[in-house]
């Protein structure tokens, strides 16, 4: 009986798996050799520092020679703090909206850029859109503080020209998050399109041609062909964004001020204040560990949901 191609491949995989690990490693030694630097980098910079998790169970200040084991004391201190829970709530609100805005605006812009057929113009547009990504957050904050200034800012100038009172956007609790989201999009939208533009180049042109012949208009083609084609990419980006949902720090830190702490204090700024400014490394590490655990849980939930709905996820 003649074996099919699939059966042959299956046998090859099984036969490889049957071999002892050392033999397999020897066989693929060059592969392992190439992987070694990556492994070492991960080991040194990602895994060994994880020992620092233990700090969250100790009383640890800059002057501590031997950290004193305090069990869950730091977590207890954290969980009874209203300010900590406020920061958790703010983090979830700011980041969730940010993720939704990020995906919708980046996909939308990528679709628009994909429609540009003149190559040089497309490149110019892309280059201009990427520039804000390379500006540091400190500079971005300075620029927008000037633009949004209630005294001489451009936006308030327009409002006043229409007879409106100036708004102190960055010190107004109702406006601060909106400003942050807009500024985040201004800075990140161009860079965020890269991965989607790459995905769009892989969409089969024949599908579009066939749909056009069948009478589909541009919106219908985007809805029924383009978006489903790049859905796996959107899913990957979404899951990776979920993993980072609690990590927001820099934009908040540079735009935050006393008047808007109630709506702007996030876990990152809380940890910085407790850990770096206040030098309570134990409590700060506990907050960091809490953040990591929640991130892992969220990623697992989203990945499982994705597998149930779409039949695929990015984690095994």
């Amino acid at each position: 009986m003649k074996r099919t191609k699939e059966q042959k491949e299956q046998k090859l995989i099984l036969s490889n798996k049957d071999k002892p690990l050392l033999k397999r490693m020897y066989k693929y030694r060059y592969m392992y050799f190439m992987y070694l630097p990556v492994f070492l980098i991960f080991l040194v910079f990602n895994y060994i520092p994880m020992v620092g998790i233990l700090i969250s169970f100790t009383k640890y200040t800059p002057f501590t020679k031997v950290p004193q084991w305090v069990g869950l004391q730091n977590f207890k201190q954290l969980f009874v703090s209203d300010i900590f829970w406020r920061s958790v709530k703010n983090t979830l609100i700011i980041s969730s909206v940010n993720i939704v805005l990020s995906i919708t605006t980046c996909v939308g812009l990528a679709l628009l850029i994909d429609e540009i057929k003149t190559v040089w113009f497309r490149k110019v547009v892309q280059s201009i859109l990427y520039i804000p990504h390379f500006i540091s957050w400190v500079v971005v904050a300075s620029i927008f503080t000037m633009i949004l200034s209630p005294q001489e800012g451009f936006i308030n100038g327009i409002l006043q020209a229409f007879g409106q009172d100036p708004i102190y956007f960055l010190a107004d609790s109702d406006w601060w998050r909106v400003c942050l989201w807009i500024i985040e999009r201004w800075k990140g939208i161009g860079w965020g399109t890269i991965i989607y533009i790459a995905a769009l180049t892989a969409v089969d042109g024949a599908l579009h041609e066939a749909a056009t012949i069948d009478g589909a208009n541009r919106v219908q083609r985007i809805w029924h062909i383009t978006l489903p084609s790049i859905a796996p990419t959107i899913l990957v980006v979404f899951i990776m964004d979920i993993a980072k949902i609690l990590n927001i720090f820099e934009p908040v830190w540079v735009l935050q001020n006393d008047a808007v702490l109630a709506v702007s204090d996030v876990i990152g700024t809380y940890v910085y204040r407790i850990g770096i400014t206040n030098a309570q490394y134990g409590v700060s590490a506990a907050a960091g560990l809490f953040k990591s655990v929640i991130s892992v849980v969220l990623v697992t939930i989203v990945n499982n949901a994705s597998r149930k709905i779409k039949g695929e996820g990015i984690l095994s």
Binding site: A171, A259, Q280
Partner: peptide, 23 residues
């Protein structure tokens, strides 16, 4: 004080800002 100074400072700053700005 060493344990809570950062939070306490934030509470003071927030209180004063909200009062002075008329919130």
């Amino acid at each position: 004080y060493n344990m809570v100074v950062a939070d306490w400072t934030s509470v003071k700053q927030e209180t004063i800002a909200n009062i002075v700005m008329g919130k």
